[in-house]
């Protein structure tokens, strides 16, 4: 269905010319341009604020370009800003997030792939019910499981650290990744697995040699989706970690909320940018796949 975004012709292309003109190109472009400015404004504000010295921020307009460009705020946010009592900047938390996101993405994508394969190509009685169980997990309001999860992580000795967060993100990520892969594999013909069976390939061989090589696009979708979700997560981070073990979103929130004295807006914005850059980069590089992830569960396809 993501293809629907890029390939088919716009509806307007089939409408006769005079009607299109009657609607007026201006009335189309003007609102679109205004909206684009509104959407870009916060990003612009974040960038320019992060590049300004503090005095210019308190003296000048928040939206204008910086008169003097300085990277001090970035440096401070990265390695000096205080989070609680520790003044280490975001760097260690950035590393925490990386340590959390990489294994969680790999594990949840891998498990989702094999689940999707089983639920489409090795259907067993009750497979649909299993899929339904997993699907509801995508829409779980996580508040409903916070307390038991906190207790369970404690029992497992995973409380307060990155491994615990990896476990949580994998557990709830499986629901999404299984959905992605199932919907993708449904469109692969069953004859493909049948042919491989006649060729003598078994369960794992078919998965590894026949199915996985055809699923590069959905693997990318799944990785990107999981990466953005897990990197941007705040609820699990703030609930299940503390102090130096927090992911970057928690640290960012602390920097912004806890600072005393004259508020360093430029450092706040630089910190927000640092937290946003990885997902923004992914979005710029692979936006097409990002859209596909967003809409995967939304429209039938």
């Amino acid at each position: 269905m993501a293809n629907a975004l890029s390939q088919p012709k716009p509806m307007a292309e089939v409408l006769p010319r005079q009607n299109r003109i009657r609607l007026g190109r201006l009335f189309i472009y003007a609102p679109l341009a205004v909206m684009a400015v509104l959407y870009l404004m916060p990003l612009w504000v974040m960038v320019v604020t992060s590049l300004k010295p503090l005095d210019e921020i308190y003296g000048g307009s928040f939206i204008g370009p910086p008169q003097t460009i300085t990277l001090d705020a970035w440096r401070s946010a990265w390695s000096q800003a205080c989070i609680g009592t520790e003044c280490t900047g975001l760097r260690p938390y950035f590393v925490n997030s990386l340590l959390m996101v990489v294994p969680a993405v790999v594990l949840s994508t891998g498990i989702g792939a094999i689940n999707g394969y089983i639920l489409t190509k090795w259907r067993f009685p009750g497979a649909n019910f299993v899929f339904g169980l997993l699907l509801f997990g995508c829409f779980l309001p996580y508040q409903a499981i916070l307390i038991p999860m906190a207790r369970t992580l404690g029992l497992l000795g995973l409380a307060g650290g990155i491994p615990g967060l990896v476990f949580v993100h994998v557990a709830y990520g499986i629901c999404f990744t299984t959905l992605f892969f199932r919907n993708y594999f449904v469109s692969l013909p069953d004859e493909l697995t049948k042919a491989a069976m006649v060729d003598g390939a078994g369960f794992f061989r078919i998965f590894w040699s026949v199915i996985l090589p055809t699923s590069i696009p959905i693997i990318v979708v799944s990785c990107i989706w999981q990466f953005t979700q897990i990197w941007n997560d705040f609820l699990f981070g703030v609930s299940f970690t503390s102090g130096g073990n927090s992911p970057i979103t928690v640290a960012l929130n602390n920097i912004v909320n806890v600072t005393t004295g004259r508020k360093q807006y430029n450092v706040d914005m630089a910190a927000a940018m640092i937290a946003a850059i990885p997902t923004l980069l992914v979005y710029i590089v692979a936006g097409r796949y990002f859209v596909r992830g967003l809409t995967a569960g939304a429209v039938k396809g």
Binding site: E191, K194, A196, G200, P213, T214
Partner: peptide, 21 residues
């Protein structure tokens, strides 16, 4: 017997060629 042990070969309607090979 599983398909591989039946000494058969099959040609499918959609050909079922492995797309990445």
């Amino acid at each position: 017997l599983s398909p591989k042990d039946r000494d058969i070969a099959m040609v499918f309607q959609s050909y079922a060629l492995y797309p990445t090979m």
